[in-house]
């Protein structure tokens, strides 16, 4: 069982579902208030959806300066897994942990509905449990979800296999190359606009999002099993 820190900013509103989804996958998930400097030794950090600081100035612009972000940045720089969902994605972009930025939807309307995404990268801690090329039905709920990057960065993302999820069928918000989620060069930091925590059980209409949380728990369990075998080998040699 891994420790999952879910950061709560003033205006976060998906922390409860995110914690429930992580627990459903077997993780020990807990909240960390944005003013805390201590993440309490997490294996994974999740920045949940919501409207931190009311989206004032720009979505995520003020939250990125919250005291907790120093520890989140250190965790990310050390290779620790970090997932930003929706507003969390916006915060990671504002903090410079992911490239690009998120702007008003091309057709200006707030969108709250199911979309289809294509799983393009399965080498991240949050998507390693999906089949490459899988198509998922997951909800979006955003007014500022149009992911934009300059042409050079877009080419780098594409060439480096860093587009994690891509809208398929239609591009709901007009994002560059229909990108719905990207990863850092090291794959450990991932941002996605759709909400997998809202689609992780049949009672919610589907469970296409569940593997985001199962992926990170399975990855941790595998790593832990390797550690145990290594210890066992040493013991046998003694």
């Amino acid at each position: 069982m891994q420790r999952v820190a879910v950061i709560v900013f003033p205006g976060s509103n998906c922390d409860a579902e995110t914690i429930a989804a992580a627990r459903q996958a077997g993780s020990d998930a807990y909240r960390v208030w944005h003013r805390d400097a201590d993440l309490k030794r997490p294996d994974v950090v999740i920045l949940p959806g919501g409207f931190s600081y009311g989206d004032y100035l720009r979505a995520g612009a003020i939250a990125r300066f919250s005291p907790v972000m120093t520890a989140v940045t250190e965790h990310a720089r050390a290779g620790g897994p970090v997932l930003g969902i929706c507003n969390g994605f916006q915060i990671l972009c504002e903090a410079g942990l992911l490239p690009g930025g998120l702007m008003r939807n091309a057709r200006l309307r707030f969108l709250s509905r199911l979309v289809r995404v294509h799983v393009e990268a399965t080498d991240t801690p949050f998507t390693c449990g999906y089949e490459p090329g899988a198509v998922l039905a997951v909800p979006i709920a955003h007014g500022e979800g149009r992911y934009v990057v300059d042409a050079r960065t877009a080419a780098e993302l594409e060439a480096g296999g860093r587009v994690v999820w891509r809208y398929t069928g239609e591009n709901p918000n007009g994002s560059t190359n229909a990108i719905a989620g990207v990863s850092s060069p090291g794959r450990n930091v991932v941002g996605i606009m759709p909400h997998p925590e809202r689609r992780n059980a049949p009672v919610l209409g589907g469970e296409d999002g569940a593997r985001v949380f199962l992926s990170m728990e399975a990855r941790y369990a595998t790593q832990h099993a390797v550690d145990v075998r290594a210890v066992g080998d040493r013991h046998l040699r003694v």
Partner: peptide, 8 residues
């Protein structure tokens, strides 16, 4: 630092 995001 804060008021503008040079990316966008």
């Amino acid at each position: 630092r804060l008021l503008a995001n040079p990316v966008i």
